[in-house]
Nucleic acid binder design. Structure first.
Length: 349
DNA sequence: TCAGATT
């Protein structure tokens, strides 16, 4: 693989926000049985505002996608923060795991792994654990539970400020029967060395909460609706930074030149990419700064090598501006990148 | 003291 990046916004520390310790364990490459699909991936910890189209754009940068689905709440339509990507070629699925697992997008670190075959037996296998000793580590938590089955994820919630364990956590097993056995074996039991017993029970179901939140919104404040798509779009657009009268759409039609503004977001020009640069490097560089809707490496038609530049589209002006300020002059391998809002200049280089 | 992994 190519150059690894280690920079990004300084705000981003842990894998999924400051309040949790999380693993991205259960290495997917080694976990599949011979029966499992080698093309279908599950993608977890997606940013809340990421759309299915953006998911497809991100994973489509690796190879041809057979299908792609962002899972949403049935009632609210809100993203549940995970989705599925099914590639045509198993090699591309493997490549996606190798290149995109652990990619930072906004405040999240996405997890990419093979999807298990869907079945009833793997549902409702998630446990909520409380009363844990504050000193217990995630590894110790897993050790305690692993005797009951294969752990898919584990987590200990921590205080946002101090980073100290809150004594509660989650264990997701591969199968529900394993979770049931763990409750039987560990609920009301004292872990080794602990003075108090722990509580182990099934965790709340995820989609219930968002549905409830929506319903209470509807019933409690009927006059305070969420802003509709138009209002949201108007908020995203920041014309007064350049022109006091510009309005999204109108400016484009009127031919007023706003640097970088491409109608659907802010287009950023990235110059001095290496010939072997690919889309994933652009996702890696810009993803941590905010909502990226698209990336594109410009390649020579015949050689398929990068012509030295590419483009990145970001939804929000402020995030784009910070990304540009941070990445302009960034050293990628032996090259120093030039990063700016796209202009209408013709770039010949 | 419940984050967000099975379409």
């Amino acid at each position: 693989m190519e150059t690894q990046l280690s920079n990004g916004p300084t705000c981003n520390n842990t894998s999924n926000g400051p309040s949790t310790i999380s693993n991205n364990c259960s290495s997917p490459v080694e976990s599949g049985s011979i029966e499992d699909s080698k093309t279908n991936l599950i993608v977890n910890y997606l940013p809340q505002n990421m759309t299915q189209e953006e998911l497809k754009s991100l994973f489509g940068s690796i190879g041809e996608i057979e299908s792609c689905k962002l899972v949403r709440d049935k009632i609210t339509g809100q993203s549940l923060g995970y989705g599925f990507v099914n590639y045509v070629d198993p090699k591309d699925a493997e490549k996606a795991i190798n290149t995109l697992n652990g990619l930072r997008l906004q405040t999240k670190t996405i997890k990419v792994s093979y999807a298990r075959p869907s079945s009833a037996s793997i549902r409702d296998a998630n446990l909520y654990v409380s009363g844990l000793p504050k000193t217990m580590t995630q590894k110790e938590l897993e050790q305690l539970f692993s005797q009951y089955g294969r752990i898919i994820t584990s987590r200990i919630l921590v205080d946002q400020v101090t980073g100290v364990s809150r004594g509660v956590g989650f264990i997701r097993f591969d199968r529900r029967v394993e979770a049931e056995e763990a409750i039987k074996g560990l609920n009301c039991q004292k872990p080794p060395g602990a003075t108090e017993p722990i509580t182990v029970k099934f965790a709340n179901n995820p989609s219930q909460k968002t549905s409830q939140a929506l319903l209470s919104q509807l019933y409690q404040s009927p006059n305070r609706r969420y802003p509709g798509p138009l209002a949201q779009q108007a908020q995203r657009f920041r014309p007064n930074r350049f022109s006091p009268m510009a309005i999204d759409g109108v400016t484009s039609l009127a031919g007023i030149n706003i640097p970088g503004h491409a109608g659907t977001g802010w287009c950023i020009f990235v110059y001095n990419l290496a010939p072997d640069a690919d889309e994933s490097i652009l996702w890696q560089m810009f993803g941590p700064f905010g909502a990226v809707t698209n990336v594109k490496v410009i390649r020579d038609f015949n050689t398929n090598k990068c012509k030295g530049f590419g483009f990145v589209t970001m939804t929000n002006y402020d995030e784009a501006a910070v990304a540009i300020a941070s990445l302009n002059g960034y050293r990628l391998g032996d090259r120093v990148l030039q990063v700016s809002f796209k202009t209408n200049k013709t770039h010949k280089a």
